[in-house]
Design a protein around this nucleic acid. Structure first.
Lengths: 192, 192, 192, 192
DNA sequence: CATGAATGAGTCTTCATTCAT
DNA sequence: CATGAATGAAGACTCATTCAT
C-alpha cells in the first residue's frame, strides 16, 4: 500500500504532471487577481484538454479547494500550535493575524474559508480539524480571560473573513492588513 | 418646473410606474439572494421591455445605486446626527450599529457602500457627504478619546462592510449582527 | 400662394427651426464620418423628440436625401452647364471631376447618388433632371468624338460612384481624388 | 503530423464537416446578397451551435476571410503569372479583368480586398503576396510604356474595387463588367 | 485516460419604430 | 404638432459541461 499524503500520488506520471500544470496555471490566474477561473481557459493555458481538467477537478469549487489545500493545512497547523500555546491569548492573536495575512496572500484559501460547503472530502476534514483546534484554543482563552464569552470557533472564522474583506474592499489599500487585524484582535477581548 | 427631489419626479405617470416596477422587481431578486440582476430577466419580471429598463437605468450599477438611494440618504442623515451628537463616542457607536444593520437589511446599499465608483452623480455626492460627516464625527471622537488615532472615515466604511460580510458569510446566522457589531465597536476603541 | 422652393417653407416657425436643427445635426454626424445616423441620437442631439424627426423625415433615406438636396441641385446645375458648353468634351471632363469631388466632400450626396430608389419625390425629379442633362451632354460628346460609343448617362453615374469608392476604400488617402478622376476621364475616351 | 495546407486539414472528421457547413451557409447568404453574416443565424442555418461557429471563426471578419481564401489564392496566382508574362501590358490587362470578374462572382473576396486589415495571418500574407506581384508587374509595365507613371500596386487594388463597385451599384446590370473593366484598362494607360 | 469539438442557455446591448400623452 | 417612453426583435459573445473520438 502506498502512503496516502494530502496530495494525490498513485497517479500515472503524465496524469500527475497534468494535474500539477492545471493547479499551477490556476494559481497564477488567482494571483493575478482573476478570480473567475474559466475552465476552458485554464485548460488551454495548461496545455491540456478541458476534459482533463474536469477529470481531476469535477467542479470549479473542487479546483479552488485543491488550490487552497496547502494553505489550509498550514493554517490548521498554526491553529493547533496556538491551541497548545502556554499563553492562549497570545496564541489567539497570533492565529488571527496569521489567518488574515494568509487569506490576503492566497485568494483561494479565502474563498474556501468563507464558504460552508466542501466539494472535496479533504476540505471537509480540514474544516473540522480547524474548528476543533480553534474551539480548544477559545476554551483556554476564555478561561484565561483573554476573550469575551459567547464567541465560538465559527465566529472566529466569519470575523476573520470579514476583516479580510475589509482589507480588499473598494480600491482599498492592502497595507491596512495589520491595522484592521488590530481591530479584530482588540474587538474580541472581554469588554472592560 | 416641478421640484427636483432625489427620487424621480417629473416623469410621465406610466413611466414612473414602470420605473417603480423595475425597482421593485430588482429589490425582490436582491432580497431573495440573487445578486446578479440580469437586465433581461428584470425586464420580463417587471413586465416591460428591456429597452425600458435601460432607459431608466443605463447599467446594472445605476440600477443598484438607484435601489440604494433611499437607504443611503438615511445613512447620511444618521451620520450627520452622530457628528452633531454631544457625545461623539455614543454617536459613533450608534452610527456603526445603524450602518451594519441597514446593510444587512438592504443588500443594494451594502453593494453600493462597498464599491468605490459611482454610476450616478447622486451616489457620488452621497458618498462625499457620508465621508465628510463621518470625518467630522471621527475628529470629535478622537478628541474625546473615544477612538484610537489613525482610523479615518474610509476605514470606518471598509470595516463596516467587513462586519456585514462576516454576518453574511457561509450559511451564517443573521442573528449575529449585534454581536459582530460589538467587535467593531470595541475594536476601534483606543488600546488600553 | 407662397413660392415653392426646394426647401419647405409654409411651416410654422418652430417646426421649421426643428427641421433645420435636425438637418444640421445630421450633417455634422455625416461630416464626422459617422454614416449611421441613428434617429434617436440625432433627435437627442438636435434637442427634439424622435417623433419630430420622423414627422419631418419618414425614414433615414428621406433624411439623407434632404441632406443631399443642395449638393444634388448644384450637381444638376453643373450638368446643365456642361451640356450647354461649346466644347462638350471639356464640359464632360469638368462635370466628372466636379461629381467626384462633391461626393467626396458630401457623404450624403454620395449615398443618394449610388442608390437607385428615392424616398422623396424631389429626389426622384432631380435624378431625372440629372440623367436628362448628362444624356444630352453625352450625345454631343459622342458627336464630337470625345467619348467612346455605348456609354450612357447611368454608366457615368455608376462609374463616378465607383471612382469615389476607390478614393475612400481601405485606409486610402483622400488625396488621390484627382489621380483617380484622371483614370475615369481617360478611361471613357474613344479607344485609339 | 499531417501536411498543413491553406485549408483546414488535421481536423476531426465531424469538426471539418461542421466547418464546411458553416462556410457553405455563409457563402450562400453572401451570394444571396446578404452581406451581414449574423453569427447566430449562420449557426442555426448550418445546424450547429453558435459556439461552434465562434470556435472555427473568431469573428465575422475571420469568417469572411476564410470564405475568400480560395479566390484570393487564385488571384495571387494570376498576379504572378501576369508579372512573369512576356508582355507586361497584356498581363496587366488580363489581371485587371480577372480581378474584377472574380470579385463580382465572389462577394467575400470583394469584401476582403477592399478592407485593409486582416483577421487571419493567412490573409495578411496573401495581401502582401498580391501587392508584391502587382508591384513587380507594374514596374515592368511602366518600362514597357504600358501604364502611366505614378500608379502603384495599391492604386490598382483600390481602382479595381471601385470598378467592381460601379458594376454593383444601384440596381445596376452585372453585364457591364467587361465594359467597365475597359474603362479601367484604358484609364491607366499613359496619357497621349 | 486525454482530448477538444460541440452545445446552447444566458447576458448584454442597440435601435427603428410606434403611440399615448 | 411635439414629445419621448416603450417596445422587442436582433445580434454579439461567453462559458460550463458533455461526450464522441
Amino acid at each position: 500500500m502506498k502512503s496516502q499524503t494530502s496530495l494525490s500520488d498513485d497517479l500515472r506520471a503524465d496524469a500527475a504532471r497534468n494535474r500539477a500544470r492545471v493547479l499551477e496555471v490556476a494559481r497564477e490566474r488567482l494571483a493575478a487577481g482573476d478570480a473567475e477561473l474559466p475552465m476552458n481557459t485554464i485548460a488551454r493555458d495548461a496545455g491540456v484538454g478541458v476534459g482533463t481538467v474536469y477529470r481531476h477537478f469535477p467542479s470549479r469549487e473542487a479546483l479552488l479547494e485543491s488550490l487552497a489545500m496547502g494553505g489550509f493545512e498550514r493554517l490548521v497547523v498554526e491553529a493547533r500550535k496556538a491551541a497548545d500555546d502556554d499563553n492562549p491569548g497570545a496564541g489567539l492573536e497570533r492565529l488571527l493575524r496569521y489567518g488574515v495575512r494568509s487569506q490576503i496572500e492566497d485568494v483561494g484559501l479565502a474563498a474556501v474559508l468563507r464558504s460552508s460547503g466542501s466539494a472535496r472530502a479533504e476540505t471537509s476534514r480540514l474544516r473540522g480539524d480547524l474548528l476543533e483546534a480553534v474551539g480548544r484554543l477559545l476554551e483556554r482563552a476564555r478561561e484565561a480571560g483573554a476573550i469575551r464569552p459567547g464567541i465560538g470557533a465559527d465566529d472566529i472564522r466569519r470575523l476573520s473573513c470579514g476583516i479580510v474583506y475589509a482589507v480588499r474592499v473598494g480600491d482599498g489599500d492592502l497595507d491596512e492588513i495589520e491595522r484592521y487585524a488590530d481591530v479584530l484582535v482588540d474587538g474580541i477581548r472581554p469588554r472592560s
